[in-house]
Design a protein around this nucleic acid. Structure first.
Length: 903
RNA sequence: GCGGGUGUGUUGAAACUGGUAGACAAGCAAGACUUAGGAUCUUGUGCCUAGCGCGUAAGGGUUCGAGUCCCUUCACCCGCACCA
C-alpha cells in the first residue's frame, strides 16, 4: 500500500471533527496547560504559507503536552473588528459583518486542512455581541473605577466619592462638577488630548497604528489634532507593568522593547522663578541631570505648553505667534523629516536659576515635547546634545561643568568625570553629584525627586463603524454609564459606513441611537479592545453570567505558552497586560500576568523568481547568461518554477503574451533568478498552503515548516528540500508496509533497535521543551534511517515512534496508529506508557586527551568518582602509549565530561 | 544616537552546562536499476601546496582545550528615537 496522504488526511480530519477529539473540559484531576496563538484578523487574501508557522508550532506543543498527560487548552478565534472590512464596506456597500463572515469561513477551511487540534467549540469572534458584551462590561468597570495611589491598585469609584465626601470636596458641587471631578480619576475617562488624526480614514489612530507619519493600515497621512477622546489610564500601571516583566518568561528583546516603551526615568522636578517683566510665576521643570544645574544658560518651552501664553511678552508676541502657527501647520510627518533642523523663538521672558539666582532667557522650541515631563526644560548645552545644537544655532552661552571635557565640537553627554564650575558640587564625580544635587534641592524646598514615564494613556475612541459601541449615554452633556443589564449594546444598522455630513462618526447615522431618550456615544472602541482579554474568554466561552467563571479562571489561570508575531510588542501585549492587571485588582482574575511564556515566531518571507526578457523581443535568456544581453527583469509566478528551473510549457501557458516566447537556455534548462521579498500578490511569490497540501500533504507541510529553521528566525519560503521531508514520511510508512503487507510484528526488539528509539526519545523531549523543532525533525530522520537499515518492523519500536511523530505529522500517525489495532485517537495515547523499559547503559565515554590533544576514549561507569576515573585512565594500556615512558604531571578529570592528562 | 540580536560549507542549518565543527536536509558529482525520469537505491562532497596541515566575520585574551567565555574592530537585521 502506498502512502496516500490525500485520502489519509481527509479521512482523519473528518473523523476528528465527528468525534470531537480535541474538545477540552475543565478537569481538576489533571494538570492544565494553556497554549494560545495570537488570533488572526481574517483578511480577504486568505492564509499564505507564512501564517501557519506559529500555529503549527503551537499545535505540535499542544499535542505533545497532551501525550504527556496534561489537560491542554488550545483554542482559536478571530480578531474580527477592524478597518479593512470597513474600508471594503465603504467601497462596495457590503456590510462588514458579511465580508468578515466570508473571510472567517475561508480561514477556517484553510486551517482545517492543516490538521490543527483546536477545540473549535470554544471559538470566539470579537464582533459577536455575545463576545463584545464582555468588552463593554470591562469598559464599564474601568469607567466606574479609579486608581488609588495609596493601595496602588484600581478600586470602585465609590471609594473615591466617599473620600471626597470625607474631605468636604463633594457636597455642594453641581452634577456636572461632580462628573468633571470624577473624570479626572476614572480608569476609562474622557479627556482633551492631541491625537493622531487620519483625515482620509476619518478617525484617530493609536501611536502603534502610525508609522513614520502614515497609517499602518492603508498608508494614509496622519496629523496631530486636539480632540475630546475616551482614554484608558494605562499610565497609572506603568510601574507595575515594568516590574511584572521580571516575573515572566519572554525574550530579552521583547521585554526591553516594553521597558523602552514604558520609559521610566528617575530625576527631579525643580521650580524656577520666571518673570515676563510684569508678573512673576513658579515654573516646574523635570530633569534627570540635577547635577548640571550650574550650567543652565536658558530655558525652553514646548510650543503647546500653557506657559507660552503667560511668558510671551508684548514685544515678542508677533514673532512667537508666527512660530506657533508654522509649528502647528506641520504634520507629524514633516516634524520627523526635519528632526535635525533646529528652530525656536525667544519668548521675551526670563527665568532665575534657583541655586545661583542667575537670569536666563526663556525660549520656545519644537524640540521640547508637551506630553513629556512638564513640557518645559532647563537647558544645559554643555552636557545635552539637543541643548547644544540649540545654543549653537541661537548663539547662547555654553558652560562646561566637567573637568577637561571637550565641548568645542559637541556636547559631553556621558555621566562620568569630575564636576567643576558647580558651587558645592565641584570636585564630586557625576555619580555622586546627581543625588547630592537632588538632596540639596529637596532640603531647600526648591523641588523634589520625581519618576517620569514615557508611557501615555491609551486613546480609546475611534470615529468609525466596525467596532464595539460604548455603553455610554449623555444626560445633559454628562457622560453616564449604562447599567450592566443593558449589555450587550449592539451595533446599530446604518445606511452608509461614512462619517455624517456634519463630521460625526458613522454611528451618527443610526436611527434611534438613544438610551432612555438620551443620545448614545457615537464613536466605537479600537481594535485592541476586543483582543485585550480574549484569552480569558476562551476559558469559559459560553458563560452569559461572567466574562469567565471563578471556577474556570482558577483552573486555567493564565496562558502557559503564547505564540505570535513581534509586531504586537508595544500594542496588544501592553494593553492586554494592563487589562488583566485591572481585572486582577477588582478580583475578577487570579493571575497578575496573563502570558507566562511568550515566543515570537519569525516571519516567512517570499522567495520571488525572475525571468529575463531581452529588450524589445519575446526572447528570454537564462539567468547565468543574462549579462550578455540587455534584459528586463520580470517576476514570474513561483508555481511555474521548481528549484529555480522554469517549467517552460507552463510559462508559455501562463499568460497570452508569453505564448510564443523563445528561450536561450543553459545546459538545456532555463534557470531563473531569485530574490527574497515580502510575500505579496504583485510579486507572484505567494505560496498558498492549500497548494502544498495538494502536492505533498499537510503532514509534509507541517514538518517542512518546522524543518526550515529555528522558529524565532525570519526566513524565506523555499521549497527546496521539501522533497526530503516528504521522502522521510514515505520511508516511515515503509517501515510498516511492505508493498501491501502490514508487516509489523510482536517480536522482541534488538538492543540496536532499542538504542535508536531511545536516542530519539531523549533528543525529542529535550528539543521540544526548548522549542527546537527543526532539530527534532532531524532526529526523526536519523532514527528512521537507522531503523530502515536495521529493517526494523517491530511493534515495540514502531508504536512509540508513531506516538512521538503524532504532534508533527498527526494524520499519518493516526492512520498507522489505527493500523496497529487501536480504535481511539492517538491523541489520547499516553506516551510514557509506551516507552519500553530500556535504560541507557550506566556508562559514559570519557574522551581522554594529552596536553589538550584528544587521543582516545575510554568507557567507564558514570558513578565513578574523579579519583577512580583518574586511576582507571592511568591503568589503561592506551595511556602508556601516549605517555611514551614519561610520567603524567597532572590529571584533570571533569566529572561526566573528559579526562586530560598533562605530561 | 540608544537598546536588543545575528555572523559557521554552494544553500537551509546542527553542535546540551567550553570537549573529535559542519549532524540532518538541499544542491552538486559519479554509479546502479531503467524505453524514460524531476522515480528509487548506492557512494562521494569544508579548504589547500594533502600535512596528520588550515578552517566557525577580523584581531587579541583566558584555558590542557574556544563556534561557545572576555576585550577590540567590522558587517548585517530588528526595535525606539528630539523622552530633558
Amino acid at each position: 500500500m502506498e502512502y496516500n496522504f490525500k485520502e489519509i488526511e481527509k479521512k482523519w480530519q473528518a473523523w476528528w471533527a465527528e468525534n470531537h477529539t480535541f474538545k477540552t473540559e475543565t478537569d481538576p484531576s489533571k494538570p492544565k496547560y494553556y497554549v494560545l496563538d495570537m488570533f488572526p484578523y481574517p483578511s480577504g487574501a486568505g492564509l499564505h504559507v507564512g501564517h501557519p508557522l506559529g500555529y503549527i508550532a503551537s499545535d505540535i506543543y499542544s499535542r505533545y503536552k497532551r501525550l504527556k498527560g496534561f489537560n491542554v487548552l488550545h483554542p482559536m478565534g478571530y480578531d474580527a473588528f477592524g478597518l479593512p472590512a470597513e474600508q471594503y464596506a465603504i467601497q462596495t456597500g457590503q456590510h462588514p459583518a458579511i465580508t468578515t463572515e466570508q473571510n472567517i469561513a475561508r480561514y477556517r477551511q484553510q486551517m482545517d486542512r492543516i490538521g490543527f487540534s483546536y477545540d473549535w467549540s470554544r471559538e470566539v469572534r470579537t464582533c459577536d455581541p455575545k463576545y463584545y458584551k464582555w468588552t463593554q462590561w470591562a469598559f464599564l468597570k474601568m469607567f466606574n473605577s479609579w486608581y488609588n495611589p495609596e493601595t496602588d491598585k484600581a478600586e470602585p469609584i465609590d471609594t473615591l466619592i466617599a473620600k471626597f465626601k470625607a474631605e468636604g470636596r463633594w457636597d455642594g458641587l453641581t452634577e456636572k462638577e461632580q462628573s468633571d471631578l470624577l473624570m479626572q480619576y476614572r480608569i476609562a475617562y474622557q479627556g482633551e488630548t492631541a491625537v493622531n488624526w487620519c483625515p482620509k480614514l476619518g478617525t484617530v489612530l493609536a501611536n502603534d497604528e502610525v508609522k513614520d507619519g502614515y497609517s499602518v493600515r492603508g498608508g494614509f497621512p496622519v496629523e496631530q489634532k486636539k480632540m475630546l477622546q475616551w482614554q484608558l489610564r494605562v499610565s497609572a500601571y506603568a510601574e507595575r507593568l515594568l516590574a511584572g516583566l521580571d516575573t515572566i518568561d519572554w525574550t530579552d528583546s521583547l521585554k526591553e522593547m516594553q521597558r523602552n516603551w514604558i520609559g521610566k526615568s528617575q530625576g527631579a522636578e525643580m521650580v524656577f522663578k520666571v518673570s515676563n517683566g510684569s508678573q512673576e510665576y513658579d515654573m516646574t521643570i523635570f530633569t534627570t541631570r540635577a547635577d548640571t544645574i550650574f550650567g543652565v544658560t536658558f530655558m525652553v518651552l514646548a510650543p503647546e505648553s500653557e506657559w507660552v501664553e503667560k511668558l510671551t511678552t508684548p514685544g515678542q508676541k508677533e514673532a512667537v505667534d508666527a512660530y506657533l502657527l508654522q509649528a502647528k501647520k506641520k504634520t507629524e510627518r514633516e516634524r520627523i523629516a526635519e528632526t535635525r533642523k533646529v528652530t525656536g523663538v525667544f519668548s521675551g521672558s526670563y527665568a532665575f536659576n534657583p541655586l545661583t539666582g542667575e537670569k536666563v532667557p526663556v525660549w520656545i522650541s519644537e524640540y521640547v515635547l508637551a506630553g513629556y515631563g512638564t513640557g518645559a526644560i532647563m537647558a544645559v548645552p554643555a552636557h545635552d546634545s539637543r541643548d547644544y545644537a540649540f545654543a549653537k544655532t541661537f548663539n547662547l552661552p555654553i558652560i562646561p561643568l566637567i573637568e577637561s571635557c571637550d565641548i568645542s565640537q559637541e556636547s559631553f553627554d556621558a555621566k562620568e568625570g569630575i564636576m567643576c564650575n558647580s558651587g558645592f558640587l565641584t570636585g564630586m564625580s557625576v555619580k555622586e553629584a546627581i543625588p547630592a544635587a537632588i538632596d540639596y534641592i529637596e532640603e531647600h524646598g526648591l523641588g523634589r525627586r520625581k519618576i517620569n514615564y514615557r508611557l501615555r494613556d491609551a486613546i480609546f475612541s475611534r470615529q468609525r463603524y466596525w467596532g464595539e459601541p460604548f455603553p455610554i449615554y449623555y444626560n445633559n452633556g454628562i457622560a453616564t454609564a449604562m447599567p450592566e443589564s443593558a449589555l450587550p449594546l449592539e451595533l446599530p444598522e446604518v445606511d452608509k459606513f461614512l462619517p455624517t455630513e456634519s463630521g460625526e462618526p458613522p454611528l451618527g447615522r443610526a436611527k434611534g441611537w438613544e438610551y432612555d431618550g438620551y443620545p448614545i456615544e457615537k464613536s466605537t472602541m479600537p481594535g485592541f479592545a476586543g483582543s485585550s482579554a480574549y484569552y480569558l474568554r476562551y476559558m469559559d466561552p459560553h458563560n452569559d453570567e461572567a466574562l469567565v467563571s471563578r471556577e474556570a479562571d482558577e483552573y486555567w489561570r493564565d496562558v502557559d505558552l503564547y505564540i505570535g508575531g513581534t509586531e504586537h510588542a508595544t500594542g496588544h501585549l501592553i494593553y492586554s497586560r494592563f487589562w488583566n492587571k485591572f481585572l486582577y485588582d477588582l478580583g475578577y482574575v487570579c493571575e497578575p500576568e496573563p502570558f507566562k511564556k511568550l515566543i515570537n515566531q519569525g516571519m516567512i518571507q517570499g522567495r520571488s523568481n525572475f525571468v529575463y526578457r531581452i529588450v524589445n523581443t519575446n526572447t528570454f535568456v537564462s539567468c547565468g547568461l543574462k549579462d550578455n544581453y540587455e534584459t528586463t527583469e520580470i517576476h514570474v509566478l513561483v508555481n511555474l518554477v521548481n528549484n529555480d528551473r522554469l517549467d517552460i510549457e507552463a510559462f508559455k501557458a501562463w499568460m497570452p503574451e508569453y505564448h510564443d516566447a523563445e528561450f536561450i537556455l543553459e545546459n538545456g534548462e532555463y534557470i531563473c533568478g531569485w530574490a527574497v521579498e515580502k510575500m505579496s500578490k504583485s510579486m507572484f511569490n505567494v505560496v498558498n498552503p492549500d497548494d502544498i497540501c495538494d502536492r505533498y500533504g499537510a503532514d509534509t507541510l507541517r514538518l517542512y515548516e518546522m524543518f526550515l529553521g529555528p522558529l524565532e528566525q525570519s526566513k524565506p519560503w523555499d521549497t527546496k528540500g521539501i522533497d526530503g521531508v516528504h521522502r522521510f514520511l514515505r520511508k516511515f510508512w515503509g517501515l510498516f508496509y511492505d508493498r501491501d503487507d502490514f508487516r509489523v510484528s510482536d517480536e522482541a526488539p534488538s538492543p540496536a533497535e532499542l538504542k535508536a528509539l531511545h536516542k530519539l526519545i531523549a533528543k525529542e523531549e529535550f528539543d521540544i521543551e526548548h522549542f527546537s523543532f527543526n532539530t527534532t525533525v532531524s532526529a526523526f530522520m536519523i532514527a528512521v534511517n537507522e531503523l530502515s537499515d536495521l529493517k526494523c518492523c517491530k511493534r515495540a519500536i514502531l508504536e512509540p515512534m508513531t506516538i512521538l511523530l503524532s504532534p508533527f505529522a498527526p494524520h499519518i500517525a493516526e492512520e498507522l496508529w489505527h493500523d496497529l489495532g487501536h480504535s481511539e485517537s492517538i491523541s489520547y495515547a499516553k506516551f510514557p506508557e509506551y516507552v519500553a523499559a530500556y535504560t541507557v547503559e550506566d556508562s559514559f565515554e570519557y574522551p581522554v586527551s594529552f596536553n589538550g590533544k584528544l587521543r582516545f576514549k575510554i568507557t567507564l561507569s558514570k558513578s565513578l568518582t574523579p579519583k577512580e576515573v583518574e586511576a582507571a585512565v592511568l591503568a589503561d594500556p592506551n595511556t602508556a602509549k601516549y605517555l611514551q615512558g614519561g610520567v603524567a604531571r597532572k590529571v584533570i578529570v571533569v566529572p561526566g565530561k573528559i579526562v586530560n592528562v598533562v605530561c
